[in-house]
C-alpha cells in the first residue's frame, strides 16, 4: 500500500471531514426539531395529526435514503423551490442544503420514534399522580413526564448522531464535498482505488468512536445524579 498521496492531497480529507461534521450537526439539529413535532403529533389525541405523523414515519422508514435524497435534490427545483446560492463557508450552498434537508427529513422519522418510545416508557402512574394533584395535561408533561423521558431519550439520540455521520456519506452522490466525496476525488486523480478509502474509513471511525465515548461519559454523569 502506498499512502504517499497524502502529503499532496491531505487538504481534501480535512475539508471533507469538516463538511461531514457540519452536515451531521445541521441534520441532527433539524432532525430533532422535526422529530419532536412528529412525536408529539403521534402521541396526541387528535386522530388526524396521528395519521399524518404515522404515515410520514412509515413512508420514510420504508423507502431507501438514496431515493429520498434524489427526490429532494431533483424534486425541489422541479416543484419550483430553488435554494438561493448564498455564500456559506465556501460551499455550494444549494447542494449542501438539499443534503441537509434530505438527511433531516429522514432522521426526523427515526428521532420521532426514539422520543415517542422514551415518553411512553414512563409509568402510567406518573401521569395519574400529576393529574390527581390537579395539574393539567400540559403541566404534567412539562414537569413530570418530559424531564424523565429526556433521560431515556438522550443516549439513543446520541446514537442517532453517530448514525447520521455514517449515513451522510451517501450524499456524495449529489456532489456534496464531504468525506466520501473527497475519497472519490483523490481516487480519481491518483488512480489509486484502494488507499483513499482506507483513509476515510479511519477518519469516519475516529469521528464516531470519539462521539460514542463522549456520549458514554455524559450518560455516566447523568446516572450519577440519580
Amino acid at each position: 500500500m502506498n499512502f504517499s498521496f497524502l502529503s499532496e492531497y491531505y487538504v481534501y480529507f480535512i475539508e471533507g471531514a469538516k463538511n461531514t461534521i457540519l452536515l451531521a450537526a445541521f441534520t441532527v439539529l433539524l432532525g430533532v426539531m422535526l422529530g419532536i413535532i412528529l412525536a408529539l403529533m403521534k402521541i396526541s389525541r387528535n386522530p388526524i395529526l396521528k395519521v399524518i405523523s404515522t404515515s410520514y414515519i412509515e413512508f420514510i422508514r420504508g423507502t431507501p435514503l438514496l431515493v429520498q435524497i434524489y427526490i429532494v435534490f431533483f424534486g425541489l427545483p422541479y416543484i419550483g423551490i430553488h435554494i438561493p446560492d448564498v455564500p456559506f463557508l465556501g460551499q455550494d450552498f444549494p447542494r449542501f442544503m438539499a443534503g441537509v434537508i434530505a438527511l433531516s427529513l429522514n432522521s426526523g422519522a427515526y428521532v420521532a420514534e426514539i422520543i415517542r418510545a422514551g415518553i411512553q416508557a414512563i409509568d402510567k402512574g406518573q401521569m395519574e399522580a400529576a393529574r390527581s394533584l390537579g395539574m393539567s395535561h400540559y403541566m404534567a408533561m412539562r414537569y413530570i413526564i418530559l424531564p424523565q423521558a429526556i433521560r431515556n431519550i438522550l443516549p439513543a439520540l446520541g446514537n442517532e448522531f453517530v448514525v447520521i455521520i455514517k449515513e451522510s456519506s451517501i450524499v456524495s452522490v449529489i456532489g456534496i464535498s464531504e468525506l466520501m466525496f473527497s475519497a472519490d476525488t483523490v481516487k480519481g486523480v491518483t488512480f489509486q482505488p484502494f488507499e483513499p478509502l482506507i483513509v476515510v474509513a479511519v477518519i469516519y471511525f475516529v469521528l464516531t468512536f470519539t462521539i460514542s465515548r463522549l456520549l458514554g461519559v455524559a450518560e455516566r454523569r447523568m446516572r450519577a445524579g440519580d
Partner: peptide, 30 residues
C-alpha cells in the same frame, strides 16, 4: 376537573412519587 382535583387528594397503591425530584420538590411542586 383540574379545579376539583386540587381539593381531592389521592394516594396510590404504587405510591407514584416523582423519581426525578427530591421529597421536598415532590411535595411542593403542586
Amino acid at each position: 376537573i383540574n379545579k376539583q382535583r386540587q381539593k381531592m387528594g389521592m394516594v396510590f397503591q404504587q405510591f407514584n412519587l416523582f423519581p426525578h425530584m427530591t421529597v421536598l420538590q415532590n411535595i411542593t411542586l403542586a
